[in-house]
Amino acid sequence: MAKVKSLADLKKMKDNLQSKMDLREKSDAPNSMVQVKVGMATCGIASGAKEVMNFFIEESAKRGISAVVTQTGCMGYCYAEPTIEVIIPGKDPIVFGDVDVKRADEIIEKYIKNGELVDGIIPVNYNTID
């Protein structure tokens, strides 16, 4: 392994290494970040939730969005799998259905970046108990 020769070298090294630790740093403070939850029950996986999840993880890093992408269990919208829930800090969670890679791209560009709503929103008409 190459030696670290100066403080500038060390900083560069840190910047390169940081992305590997990103996920851990982010999990420590999820509330200040965009959270994307992907429904990954059997039906979700069967209809392609895994690809969508990988897409979110890779693209949010590439496009410089600091987001925590997690998986969650069945959300109950079996007719609209893959389903995802997006929480932007300070806003109510929004659930999107029928999310393929194309729609995921749209969600990142329009909703996460600019707050514009896109097709496929499933109105949440239930309450959860804290």
Partner: peptide
């Protein structure tokens, strides 16, 4: 690497 990713050894560099 994980230590460096969390600002490891930067304090030493700063001291220099």
């Amino acid at each position: 690497d994980e230590y460096i990713a969390r600002d490891g050894y930067s304090a030493l560099g700063k001291c220099f």
